[in-house]
Amino acid sequence: MGLPNPAIKKGINTLIKFSNVTHFYNDGQENKITSLSEINFEIQKGDFIAIIGANGSGKSTLAKHINGLLLPSQGDVFVENYNTKDPENIWEIRKKIGMVFQNPDNQLVATTVEDDIAFGLENIGMEEEEMKERVDWALNIVDLNELRNSEPHLLSGGQKQKVVIAGALAMHTSYLVLDEPTSMLDPKGRKEVLEITKRLNQEEKITIIYITQFMSEAAEFNKIILLDKGKIILSDYPKAIFKKVDLLIKLSLEIPQITKLARQLSENGLNIPTNILKEEEMMEYLCLYI
């Protein structure tokens, strides 16, 4: 599909590393808040990771550390060996990391879809011809070519988020950080955004860090990081995470319907694992009883 993403071709070992990161809001004031405390983790090239946690657990704060929108109060964040604290690196880092935020209305800058996708490219001073190519390429990937001249406020929430994603793609981003991108969307929009995220990981080899409150979404990822009160308390495969249903409930996280059902059946004496995440899986176990 058009131009390949050159960031992949270079074959650099893409990597993000949080090393003992602690972050305070209002440092030195009375209302000081510890929003992240001693966070350590690494993200490898091609990872497909979900970050979950209750409201106020520090997910957005963590996301903003990845591209230097916030800097650690203690510790360091490295993006491919660039330290986010070094002001010289910040634009290089932001070029590599695409960000999608929660509210689709507050991220689009320009008055048409294609102008918005070009916004980041204009900012880095790209030549006009290359810009045109990149915008066309990004529009194709998110399948919004017909809407290229539309005004943002006429799009659905899901389409707006796709425009934001396309804006990041046009920058040839190697990482995409999505901070609750679907929480303000209808079910259709949610599905579309999740689908496209998957496709970008598989086809364009973009590393995905996906923050969500929906456990049903998190279940689709290869790895889940669970945050609570600014700390990473679990970091594991979905199957392992969903075994700890009690913990998730305690943290007031919403459990997928199918997992709830499995748990209830198991409590009622059926021999069924409690961490079932997919309907097909449930079918298989239930078939054993017929």
Binding site: L69, M99, N106, G120, A168
Partner: peptide, 8 residues
């Protein structure tokens, strides 16, 4: 914030 994240 979104604009800054996009290198503005």
């Amino acid at each position: 914030i979104a604009m800054e994240a996009r290198c503005y």
